[in-house]
């Protein structure tokens, strides 16, 4: 517990850029098995490149946009994860985020698709205020965030949608101040992001009356000796929580409640020094998901130091994009 000097490894920017570009090139069996995550993967890749300020030179805009539209599910009126896959709220939000990055007005979507996708997302909200992921009924605070964020991107939020959604979120808060996936469910750091993020989108952060309690819970996620964040008490740290926890703290204006330098060091030790990319823990397999959230974490810690794009903790998109949003006021 003594204050030791933290060794901070260099950021392997070029390697990470290459790693992301190369995602599509090694077509192993596992790659084909991950089609159902491709839209999300693309969003993670685009975001990671944007953070490193190299999106335009690394990924051809038209190819990205073509891919997104090739995943349009006209039957449901939403985006699937891959061509011919069913529309789902998860992939729909990713698709909208990608399109918004390239076209803040979303004119590219066209009025017909726009209407359909709005109807699709709105249609997924249940009387409880929660959203389901698709027509088959899976509910979870993840989908509340997805729903509100999507509609916010489309500038389609209304009190009829926001109020019950917010009510539902508040039912998911636990005695420790933190949030679970459903009312009654155990607190989990990623769930905190979806709840706090959704409340921020809904302009209802004031409902978290005791933000010291929540802030304390979040700050306790940082563990030694690694300095990384875990997702629940007595669990191991994982790079992706660098985002879920730090973004939540950032929304609550409590980023300084954790040791950012130690977190930075942890994220950087999870880099693959040979092939680029970031894994969940040091020496573990890398993937695009942890690469994106590791870099997003670094951007929240100090975007200027790394010459990164500043990231918006609410939307996990660059602030230069989100500042154009018409923010919902309750």
């Amino acid at each position: 517990m003594t204050d030791t000097e933290v060794e901070i490894l260099p950021l392997l920017r070029e390697k990470h850029i290459n790693y992301i570009i190369e995602q599509d090139s090694h077509r192993s069996y596992e790659y084909w098995l991950s089609e159902h995550l491709r839209m999300n993967g693309l969003y993670w890749g685009v975001t990671a490149l944007l953070i490193m300020k190299s999106l335009d030179e690394s990924l051809p805009r038209s190819e990205v946009i073509d891919f997104v539209f090739s995943c349009w599910d006209s039957k449901a009126g939403g985006f699937g994860a891959f061509p011919r896959h069913d529309a789902h709220l998860l992939s729909t939000l990713s698709a909208l985020q990608i399109l918004k990055i390239y076209d803040t007005e979303l004119t590219i979507l066209g009025s017909e698709k726009r209407e359909q996708v709005v109807a699709f997302v709105k249609g997924l909200q249940l009387p409880s205020g929660c959203f389901q992921g698709d027509r088959f009924g899976e509910v979870d605070t993840r989908f509340v965030y997805n729903g509100l964020s999507s509609l916010s991107l489309l500038d389609e939020l209304t009190p009829e949608i926001v109020d019950p959604a917010v009510k539902f979120i508040m039912e998911c808060q636990n005695f420790d101040g933190s949030f679970g996936m459903l009312p009654g469910a155990e607190s989990h750091a990623a769930q905190v992001f979806t709840c706090v993020g959704a409340l921020a989108i809904a302009d209802k952060l004031h409902l978290i009356e005791d933000d010291t309690k929540l802030g304390s819970w979040l700050s306790e996620r940082q563990v030694l000796p690694s300095g990384g964040f875990n997702g629940r008490p007595e669990k191991l740290p994982d790079v992706c929580y660098s985002w879920w926890v730090l973004s939540s703290l950032s929304i609550l204006n409590k980023k300084h409640w954790v040791d950012l330098e130690k977190l930075e060091a942890f994220i950087l030790t999870c880099q693959d020094s040979k092939d680029g990319g970031i894994g969940d823990r040091p020496d573990n397999q890398t993937d695009i998901y942890h690469t994106c959230f590791g870099l997003a974490g670094l951007s929240l810690i100090d975007h200027e130091k790394y010459n990164f794009t500043e990231i918006d903790p609410v939307y996990c998109m660059p602030t230069e994009v989100t500042k154009t949003f018409k923010k919902w006021k309750s």
């Binding site: 596992e30 098995l33 991950s34 995550l37 999300n40 998860l90 992939s91 939000l93 990713s94 979870d140 993840r142 965030y145 997805n146 996936m181 989990h188 990623a190 769930q191 992001f193 979806t194 875990n230 997702g231 629940r232 669990k235 191991l236 740290p237 994982d238 992706c240 929580y241 879920w244 969940d280 998901y289």
Partner: peptide
């Protein structure tokens, strides 16, 4: 590859 994964929420397979 498949033992855990999801979009926004990561389950802790830690």
């Amino acid at each position: 590859l498949s033992s855990d994964n999801e979009n926004v929420i990561e389950d802790d397979s830690d």
